[in-house]
Amino acid sequence: MLRSPGALAGLWIVGLLVLVVSSALVTTIGPSGLTSGDVLQSALARVSGVDSGLSRIQEGIIWNLRLPRTVMAALAGAGLALCGVILQSLLRNPLADPYILGISSGASTGAVLIVVLGIGAGAVGLTTGAFVGSLVAFGFVLLLAFASGGTTDRVVLAGVAATQLFSAMTSFVVYIAADAEQTRGVLFWLLGSLASVRWSDVVVCAVVVLAGLVVCLLHTSELDAFTFGQDAAASLGVNVARIRLVLMVVTALVTAVIVSTCGAIGFVGLVLPHAARALVGNRHRVLVPTAALMGAVFLVWIDAASRTVIAPQELPVGVATALIGVPAFVVLLLRRGRTR
Rank of each mutant, 00 (worst) to 15 (best):
I86G: 01
V249A: 11
V254Y: 01
M1R: 02
R66Y: 13
I86H: 13
V202G: 07
V257W: 09
V309G: 00
S105Q: 14
R198C: 02
G122M: 08
A24R: 03
G281A: 07
A158M: 13
A233I: 02
N64Y: 05
L82C: 07
L113W: 09
Q58N: 14
G237I: 00
A304P: 03
A158I: 14
L272D: 12
L247Q: 06
A328L: 04
I310T: 08
V300W: 11
S235H: 14
A123E: 10
L95F: 11
V250E: 03
A195C: 03
A121Y: 04
P98S: 05
A241M: 07
S167E: 03
M248W: 00
A24P: 13
E222R: 10
T255D: 09
A206R: 04
V132R: 08
V286E: 03
I29C: 07
R277T: 09
T220C: 09
D224K: 00
M1P: 12
G10Q: 02
I243K: 04
N64E: 13
G6M: 07
T183A: 14
V280K: 01
R283W: 05
I265P: 04
A305D: 07
L67K: 05
L44E: 09
G15M: 04
R198D: 13
L19Y: 01
R184V: 01
V20N: 03
A322E: 04
I103W: 00
A296F: 10
A107R: 11
G295F: 08
R244M: 11
G133H: 03
L135W: 04
R285Y: 02
A147N: 08
V203I: 14
T290G: 08
A121T: 10
S32R: 10
V309T: 12
A233L: 08
V202Y: 02
V250N: 00
A177G: 03
P316T: 11
G129K: 06
T183F: 07
R198K: 12
R340N: 01
P327W: 00
G122Q: 11
R92A: 06
G192N: 01
G84L: 10
G49P: 01
A276L: 14
A180G: 04
A73W: 09
S167D: 03
Q88A: 09
F228K: 00
L210S: 13
I29L: 14
V173T: 13
G84I: 03
T35H: 05
M248I: 15
G33T: 08
M1C: 01
A161I: 14
G118A: 03
A195T: 15
L210A: 13
A24L: 14
D303W: 05
T109H: 09
T152R: 11
L194V: 09
V14M: 10
R66G: 12
T308Q: 12
L82P: 06
L91H: 07
W12S: 02
A96R: 01
A195R: 11
F166K: 12
P5W: 06
Q313A: 15
F131L: 13
